[in-house]
Design a protein around this nucleic acid. Structure first.
Length: 113
DNA sequence: AATCTGACGGGCA
DNA sequence: GTGCCCGCCAGAT
């Protein structure tokens, strides 16, 4: 996986990302940018997405969507439809890989945490 | 060693 | 209002 040489820096970022994601209340969602911003890397949304690439099972990555509330990363799930299904099961209204009422169920770490 | 891509975001044309 | 481009960090080819 990650180069241990740079792992130090990433580990902190990853740990924070995972921590925040795991703290997302049930029925709520957040965006990559929000997490990135919370971590200080306001433009490092990509990095957050990449971090999710290795999301442990204990990390509800399905609650993390892009700024549009779109389940862009659902394709990385197993199966991809599981993402929307889980969200829906948690009370999140999802339609066509899109989170409904995103603004209402949006959970901002830097604001809520 | 160099270049492109990537589960994104925000700004500018 | 829509579309395109640039910037962030790291990895993979």
């Amino acid at each position: 996986m990650i180069k241990q040489k740079n792992a130090d820096k990433q580990q902190n970022f990853f740990a924070d990302v995972y921590e925040v994601v795991k703290l997302i209340p049930k029925g709520r969602v957040t965006s990559y940018g929000a997490i990135a911003h919370y971590l200080g890397a306001k433009s490092g949304a990509r990095m957050v997405g990449w971090a999710m690439h290795g999301c442990p099972k204990n990390v509800p990555a399905h609650r993390v969507v892009n700024s549009q509330g779109l389940l862009t990363g659902k394709v990385h799930f197993n199966p991809p439809s599981a993402m929307g299904a889980k969200l829906k099961k948690e009370g999140v209204r999802v339609a066509k890989d899109k989170v409904q009422l995103f603004a209402e169920i949006f959970w901002d770490p830097s604001k809520e945490l």
